[in-house]
């Protein structure tokens, strides 16, 4: 064979192989009905919360408990809603309550027009990039996943409670039946399937917004750009990935 002819033929084969492989995958092996496989390296999850939109309906609290089989009692939560009652003369001592985590809504307790500030603050695991809870786990049963979610390895947790103590946001509890630690997983079983979290799915006002920071088209970038956002306890340098817009200075 002439050298030129050989090169041409070889080039064609080289070009066709990936095409053939793709054709094989799509045609012969059945259509790819499932969404493309989830790649951890392509995602970096966080949550944005717009205080000005939260109506304290408790939908997120109820949905979270259902989705993740969090026991109704005793009063443990993966996410909960707090009500703040702030007297402008005494910013440092807000009155905070969270009856049953907001599960049943908030019975009216305050009066309008008395000069106080009243608002709701949804809370959940902040999915810190440098989590204190992960650092203290003696066995590696809690960890930051490659896509930025702080998860628990149930089969491996000893139930030693170090992480419960270490979390500055009070987001962890010991599951009363399993006796292992439990916390918000950012609905890892949902977000890796292209669904949003149960709390975002049921939030009627869009006060909660799951965001993929590695997706340039995700609206969270615009949200973080146009709003003054804050994280809770920034002085702890936890690398929190739960951003609050419209957060009052009294919120801890």
């Amino acid at each position: 064979m002439e050298r030129r002819a050989f090169l041409e033929a070889a080039g064609k084969v080289l070009l066709l192989t990936p095409a053939a492989a793709a054709a094989l995958e799509h045609g012969l092996l059945g259509s790819t009905e499932n969404p493309p496989e989830y790649k951890q390296a392509d995602h970096w999850w966080g949550m944005a919360i717009d205080i000005g939109k939260c109506i304290g309906c408790g939908n997120c609290v109820r949905a979270c408990k259902t989705e993740n089989d969090v026991p109704l009692e005793p009063y443990y939560f993966r996410t909960w809603v707090e009500r703040y009652h702030v007297n402008p003369d005494d910013q440092d001592h807000p009155e905070v309550d969270s009856p049953n985590g907001g599960y049943d809504g908030f019975p009216e307790k305050y009066r309008a027009g008395d000069g106080t500030k009243n608002f709701f603050v949804p809370k959940l695991c902040n999915h810190c990039a440098h989590s204190p809870c992960v650092q203290v786990c003696p066995v590696g049963a809690t960890f930051e996943s490659p896509d930025g979610v702080v998860l628990v390895d149930r089969t491996y947790c000893l139930g030693c409670r170090y992480c419960v103590q270490a979390c500055p946001y009070g987001c962890r509890y010991i599951h009363p039946e399993r006796q292992t630690v439990d916390k918000c997983s950012l609905c890892y079983h949902r977000i890796t399937k292209g669904l949003t979290t149960a709390c975002c799915e049921t939030c009627p006002t869009g006060a909660r917004m799951l965001g993929d920071l590695k997706d340039p088209k995700d609206p969270i970038h615009e949200f973080l750009r146009v709003n003054m956002v804050q994280v809770l306890k920034p002085q702890m340098a936890t690398g929190s990935k739960t951003w609050y817009a419209g957060l009052d200075g009294s919120v801890r």
Binding site: G140, H189, R190
Partner: peptide
Amino acid sequence: YGHYRAGALADNRAYPVKFAGR
């Protein structure tokens, strides 16, 4: 991936979904 069991990621993903989504 780090100081944890890689299979824990799959365990977390395997949880059943209860809200189907809009």
